[in-house]
């Protein structure tokens, strides 16, 4: 299965991935409307360690703790992709408690959200990868 991987060496820390992610998942057709003058809730985030930056998003683990731990039965694996049913999620954040990658977080309305590879939004494939100016994030089979 194709997943998102980072290439620390090439990451500039520009955070375009965060903006592209938030836009792709906003359901809006203009980046300005989606992002300007408001807090954004991207599903990928940039971390920094000793001057090195890298993007972190859901690993789509093979044996995911979030799926096993969700108290609402709202997280499932569909064809290898881990998905959160926003309607069922009550925002308890047990997934945040257990994700060892720090890749799940509360979204704008309190429900948990994470990378679902943009498969269901208008982008169709990971927007963070598509918009990365330096190929520091890739979407491939490993």
């Amino acid at each position: 299965m194709k997943r998102v991987y980072v290439n620390e060496k090439w990451c500039l820390g520009c955070r375009l991935c965060e903006y592209n992610c938030a836009f792709a998942n906003s359901g809006l057709d203009s980046m300005v409307k989606a992002l300007k003058d408001k807090p954004i809730f991207p599903r990928v985030h940039i971390e920094e360690a000793e001057g090195i930056t890298y993007a972190v998003s859901c690993r789509h683990c093979k044996d995911p703790l979030c799926v096993k731990s969700c108290i609402a039965g709202a997280i499932s694996i569909q064809d290898g992709v881990i998905k959160i049913d926003k309607e069922k999620c009550v925002g308890c954040l047990t997934c945040v408690l257990v994700c060892p990658y720090g890749a799940v977080a509360a979204g704008e309305n309190g429900a948990a959200q994470k990378c679902e590879l943009c498969l269901a939004n208008s982008c169709g494939e990971p927007a963070c990868v598509a918009g990365c100016p330096n190929n520091a994030i890739v979407y491939e089979e490993r």
Partner: peptide
């Protein structure tokens, strides 16, 4: 809490392969 707490090689393993 962030993955930056880990040494670089461990972090790269976590982010660079299927887990």
């Amino acid at each position: 809490p962030s993955l930056a707490v880990y040494k670089a090689d461990i972090r790269r393993k976590k982010l660079g392969g299927v887990v």
